[in-house]
């Protein structure tokens, strides 16, 4: 008898802890959404109003219209689409090279690749900026997307290589015997097999590009070229001059987060797979 009581107490304790933790996690999120639906006079009420009555959905429309947010959204989609596509193509090719082909210097080069993961981005930032400046491409979208053709993101190459290593070699050997060349093997055999890894990287890289503030901040000067994050920064700076309109800021933060959260729910498996590949096989 004592044992079952103990077991019940134990699981009660576990669920109580989990629920408490979940509350801590969810309250700020809830507060963000709640604030975004409040009128300016309901912001600082005491006790705090958790569910705004009535919810003011117009906040979203009004805030959206204060700056060219439609344009910002289009810019973000444009930048993200080009960068992610190029990244997926080159990352998978490079990882294939590192995983499957034997050539002199491969292991040294791979160690260098891993070392670049540790390199803080600020170190290369200024010279990179100077290169784009010399090319006359500052204040265009080019610096935000062209680099993706050079398989940027060493972490993705690493993840992808780990994935290639799990595919048995015998599969290609049969194709080589049949006289298939590298391009054919990659296209017809490897590409279908690495789909899960490609999707995982697509999801992570989408998230990375969507949230990336540094590059747009440095390269873009014209407000109409801003992506969402930079638009949000500009919005914040404009609104903070007077009394901050937190309801509008929260509304735009919710919209900024929505696609990523939606993607997370749709492709949760890949998010979790992505972070685990790096951790357990590293």
């Amino acid at each position: 008898m004592g044992l079952t009581v103990r077991r019940i107490l134990k699981s009660a304790f576990i669920y109580a802890c989990l629920t408490m933790g979940a509350a801590v996690v969810m309250v700020p999120l809830f507060w963000m959404i709640s604030t975004s639906l409040k009128g300016p006079d309901a912001l600082f009420t005491y006790p705090p109003e958790w569910i705004p009555r009535p919810p003011i959905w117009r906040n979203y429309i009004d805030a959206w219209k204060m700056l060219p947010f439609t344009r910002f959204l289009f810019n973000t989609v444009f930048i993200t689409a080009l960068a992610v596509t190029a990244e997926l193509i080159t990352t998978s090719l490079v990882a294939y090279g590192f995983a499957r082909f034997d050539f002199r210097g491969r292991d040294v080069l791979f160690v260098i690749l891993l070392a670049t993961m540790m390199l803080p981005w600020v170190v290369t930032l200024i010279p990179s900026f100077l290169i784009w400046r010399r090319l006359g491409l500052v204040d265009t979208f080019d610096p935000l997307v062209l680099g993706a053709w050079f398989a940027w993101g060493p972490a993705y190459i690493f993840m992808m290589r780990q994935f290639f290593l799990t595919i048995p070699k015998s599969i290609e050997e049969a194709a080589i015997m049949d006289g298939a060349n590298v391009v054919q093997i990659y296209w017809h055999i490897m590409l279908p097999m690495i789909r899960p890894a490609l999707l995982a990287i697509a999801v992570l890289s989408f998230q990375g590009n969507w949230n990336n503030l540094q590059a747009p901040l440095i390269y873009l000067n014209t407000m109409e070229k801003y992506p969402m994050v930079l638009g949000l920064k500009f919005f914040e700076a404009t609104l903070s001059k007077e009394a901050p309109m937190w309801n509008y800021m929260m509304a735009m933060s919710v919209l900024m987060a929505l696609p990523i959260v939606g993607l997370f729910f749709a492709a949760q498996k890949y998010f979790i797979e992505g972070i685990n590949i790096g951790a357990t096989k590293g």
Binding site: L213, S253, A257
Partner: peptide, 17 residues
């Protein structure tokens, strides 16, 4: 999922929140 959710939010949104 619940615990993971905050780390999915864009840093910009988290900071403003």
């Amino acid at each position: 999922t619940l615990y993971y959710l905050p780390s999915v939010l864009p840093a910009a949104a988290t900071a403003l929140l």
